[in-house]
């Protein structure tokens, strides 16, 4: 346990020191919330826009902090040799991954709290009643995206391209899944794609807790899809994980 907290502390230091990561995965979702909420005033499909968008941006936050953040960190560390170097230390690999996940969840928890606070101050969105279900939904989403992020890291070969590749996945997914606003007017094809994306279902779960005040088990299908994606991510992550830098040239 001492080792876990030591590494968690190290991961926290590394996270907040990396200004790019801290900006894109922590500040950016908060900034986007303010932006989209200023754009959509009033109602979205009969529900207060501030609430609907809070649910959307919390989902986006989980995807960007957990999926993008972990994928980018792992690629950079693998390519500059730190992961390989860590393998020669007594830090157990599972402990390392656990601390990285723990650190990411901690960052996301702070971000979610900040966003809920921001929604309250700027758009008078009350603190959700279903806090337990909200927390569980976000934890499930963040865990699933973390597994997918570890899997994604294996597919990226260079540290330079990591940020671009990951955002190429996250941003369109966020648009299609309704994180940034209503999608019912989107073309049929795009909505069909959205129907298989994990973020669509995470946003649905979060919306159920925040907008409709429903407990988490009210949406078993959505839980299943998010968890299913998480499992696929986990299997791919275990199968494809690499400690050593990609061969150059």
């Amino acid at each position: 346990m001492r080792l876990f907290f030591h590494e968690l502390k190290g991961e926290q230091l590394l996270y907040w020191r990396s200004r790019e990561a801290a900006f894109f995965t922590f500040i950016f979702p908060l900034l986007l919330y303010v932006l989209v909420s200023a754009f959509y005033t009033g109602d979205i499909y009969g529900q207060p826009a501030g609430r609907v968008l809070l649910a959307g941006l919390l989902g986006y936050g989980a995807a960007t902090t957990s999926f993008a953040g972990i994928a980018i960190f792992l690629v950079i560390r693998r390519e500059n040799g730190v992961l390989k170097r860590l393998r020669a230390t007594p830090l157990p690999p599972a402990m390392y991954i656990a601390a990285l996940l723990g650190s990411t969840l901690l960052v996301f928890a702070i971000e979610a709290a900040a966003m809920i606070g921001l929604a309250r101050v700027t758009y008078h969105v009350g603190v959700p009643d279903r806090l337990g279900s909200l927390a569980l939904s976000l934890l499930l989403g963040a865990a699933a995206f973390a597994a997918l992020g570890i899997a994604m890291a294996a597919a990226i070969r260079s540290a330079e391209g990591a940020s671009a590749v990951v955002n190429l996945v996250v941003l369109p997914m966020a648009f299609l899944s309704g994180s940034f606003g209503p999608t019912r007017h989107f073309p049929h094809v795009l909505r069909a794609i959205a129907d298989v994306l994990p973020l669509t279902y995470l946003v649905r779960l979060v919306r159920s807790a925040i907008v409709f005040d429903q407990p988490i088990w009210h949406e078993p299908g959505a839980i299943g899809v998010v968890a299913g994606w998480g499992l696929v991510g986990l299997v791919l992550a275990v199968w494809a994980f690499r400690w050593e830098p990609s061969e150059s040239g």
């Binding site: 230091l13 590394l14 560390r77 500059n80 040799g81 170097r85």
Partner: peptide, 8 residues
Amino acid sequence: SSAVYTTL
């Protein structure tokens, strides 16, 4: 080759 966290 050198393997370090450059931000620390």
